[in-house]
Design a protein around this nucleic acid. Sequence first.
DNA 1: GTCTATACTGTGATAGAC
DNA 2: GTCTATCACAGTATAGAC
Lengths: 217, 217
Amino acid sequence: MKTSATATRTRAKASRPPEPAPEDQGKSRQRILDAAATVLSREGFAGAKLTDIAAEANLRAATLYYYYESREALVEAVMVTGSEHVRHHTEEMLAGLDPSMDAVDRLCAAVESHLRFVLEISDYTKAVIRNAGQVPQHIRKSLDAEIGRYGKLWQSLVDAAAQGTAFRTRAERRTLRLLILGGLNWTVEWWEAAHTPLDEVVKTATQMTRAMLRKGP
Amino acid sequence: MKTSATATRTRAKASRPPEPAPEDQGKSRQRILDAAATVLSREGFAGAKLTDIAAEANLRAATLYYYYESREALVEAVMVTGSEHVRHHTEEMLAGLDPSMDAVDRLCAAVESHLRFVLEISDYTKAVIRNAGQVPQHIRKSLDAEIGRYGKLWQSLVDAAAQGTAFRTRAERRTLRLLILGGLNWTVEWWEAAHTPLDEVVKTATQMTRAMLRKGP
DNA sequence: GTCTATACTGTGATAGAC
DNA sequence: GTCTATCACAGTATAGAC
């Protein structure tokens, strides 16, 4: 998730060409984007400085402008990437499921997929979760469509799973979806591997999902 | 929640004493704190500039230093206030409940209380929710105790309500509490009065809580 | 392609008039 | 008690060497 390069980069005072360490080589553009995702997910939109991002990528801030037009363009790239990635990840997972699978089971699979993706795999998506609400208007706008698609996907899962439960109206099911997904997203604020293994969180989250969608009285 | 004072304050070019508009009078210290809560809840920690806060309070930025030692001191005051307020609000509500009331009903009352307080009443608490994870270490530290107390309160409500359900271990119940409260906190990211009346959200949230804590198979 | 140097801008903070 | 003026610094962005 973050490169293991020494934070304090070796840099002779008036030295010659960079001579990048092995892990520094390769496509800088990607390294910069990764670094931006990491820093954004940690510091937030307004708190993520170009110098931090550059440091995370083992570069100087000015170098970022060779690859991105501006700070905002870089932020936007991270946010768009992150919002596309969760959706694709979840869609692919669902595509791999037995089509005859029960609706509640499918929803639980999505719960697990979302949780693992956000907490273990993608700083990009974590950046989206923590910053979608604080980013400038025009970036927000470019995210809305994609986030809307993911919402629709989840809504279809929730609607199917809520068949025959007390959640009857469209409005109730929308709110239910937002409450569930909200509980999952909020894990980025408190989950620490050291305290609770992710498997445990996943288990309880799916258990909760099942419990609340049981058919019955 | 925000003063209705005209944003562009009347200000003669080389004029005499402030002559504050009626709504500007009274304790500025409080107005500044309120303004800081509003701006923090909207812009986030790093994005909340002193000039924004001052404008919201109909003052100049330099004036804030008459009341607060620094920007961070002001932010800390907002955060501490906000975290105390939710807890007190919920405690008082619980104290007013019939002591014989069912544990699930009590939890639902807390769900309603938390939701209404955060979404309708307090920008302070909204500021806490959106910024607790982005605020500098030493502020965070001063919040932890208070937030911990609120967590304990909720844990006791969840533990009582989860008696006889499938959530048996301490770890499961802790995660359950965090998922529920997370779902509620996340509403600050999506709820808009125009789209869904708060009453509807409350209804669905309590319904969800009941559904997931039903005794049974 | 990455760096150093530097210009420009905005923000936190202080001094002192009123 | 609030303002204007100003400073100091941090952060974005550009220019140009290598």
